[in-house]
């Protein structure tokens, strides 16, 4: 109990407390630019009644879903190569390299992309030499997606690699002995065996993209704003905290449903 109690108290006070308070806050009222504690549905009704909220909601959902699909597909061949085509030692080194981006400022990396993708940026300058472009890449979905990949790809590759490296090699050899081709081995043996890791990678990608405000704001141009940008706008440029809380609660609920469904899928017996 000595070891448990401080942690429980800490987490209740500074993790559960804030989240519960945020839920409560979504029922508060704003009067004369001041928040008043109450239990009213006002903010919920206001937000749900606004077209822009739903636009943002489905736009964010779609962006995060796309990011998840793209990241999963882009990461898979890389992770497959890492899991099966390099030695254990090399793999350890490459995974170490993949950890590095986590500890470089995501903001700085985004800024780099901004500079690279800009109308007069690095890529367009290079393309200019061979008489192409300029292409508009900033303030597009493409820009947002580049940002999302910067954020999520290393993690997704790591998770996929680890799950595939743990697939029983005997299983693969057995399948090959039984005459399965490469494609069949991947679809019938490797993907089902590594399913949990693949899905967890996808879930993390979804959570990160869904909550990120940097890529859609600085690279995507915030048109329309995603939910996280909405939260920032509502809080930083106004006193509508209860409305921000409504958005946050909606986001958390959505994430929980997605994560829960995905984890159920990951651990279901059927493939």
């Amino acid at each position: 109990m000595t070891w448990r109690l401080p942690v429980i108290v800490w987490q209740l006070l500074f993790f559960v407390g804030p989240l519960l308070f945020m839920i409560a806050m979504s029922f508060f009222l704003v009067k004369n630019y001041r928040m008043v504690e109450a239990f009213e549905m006002t903010s919920w009704i206001k937000m749900f009644g606004k077209g822009y909220f739903w636009d943002s909601y489905f736009f964010t959902l779609a962006l995060a879903a796309w990011a998840t699909i793209v990241a999963t597909c882009v990461a898979f061949p890389a992770a497959f190569g890492l899991a099966f085509k390099v030695s254990d030692g090399t793999r350890r080194w490459i995974i170490f390299l993949l950890i590095i981006p986590f500890f470089t400022s995501y903001l700085v990396r985004t800024f780099s992309w901004y500079v690279i993708l800009a109308e007069s940026g690095v890529i367009n300058n290079i393309l200019g030499y061979i008489g192409l472009g300029p292409y508009t890449m900033l303030n597009t979905r493409f820009g947002t997606m580049v940002g999302y990949m910067t954020l999520t790809l290393p993690l997704v590759i790591i998770l996929q690699t680890l799950s595939m490296a743990n697939v029983d090699k005997n299983l693969i050899e057995a399948a090959q002995n039984l005459g399965a081709g490469r494609f069949q081995v991947i679809c019938k043996v490797i993907i089902p065996s590594a399913k949990v890791g693949l899905i967890i990678g996808a879930v993390f990608c979804f959570i990160l993209s869904f909550g990120d405000f940097v890529a859609p704001y600085y690279l995507g141009g915030s048109k329309p704003p995603t939910l996280s940008i909405l939260i920032i706008d509502t809080t930083k440029s106004g006193q509508q905290w209860p409305r921000a809380a409504v958005v946050a609660v909606m986001m958390t609920t959505t994430l929980m449903i997605v994560a829960f469904t995905a984890i159920k899928l990951a651990y279901s017996k059927k493939t």
Binding site: P18, M22, A248, L255
Partner: peptide
Amino acid sequence: QFRGKNSYLVLALLPPTIPLIILALAMLAW
């Protein structure tokens, strides 16, 4: 080993799965 150990671990390990912006909002409000 104790009853509720799983809940305890979930409570302890959950924070990184909550989007930072939500955590930020909740923390500042709190």
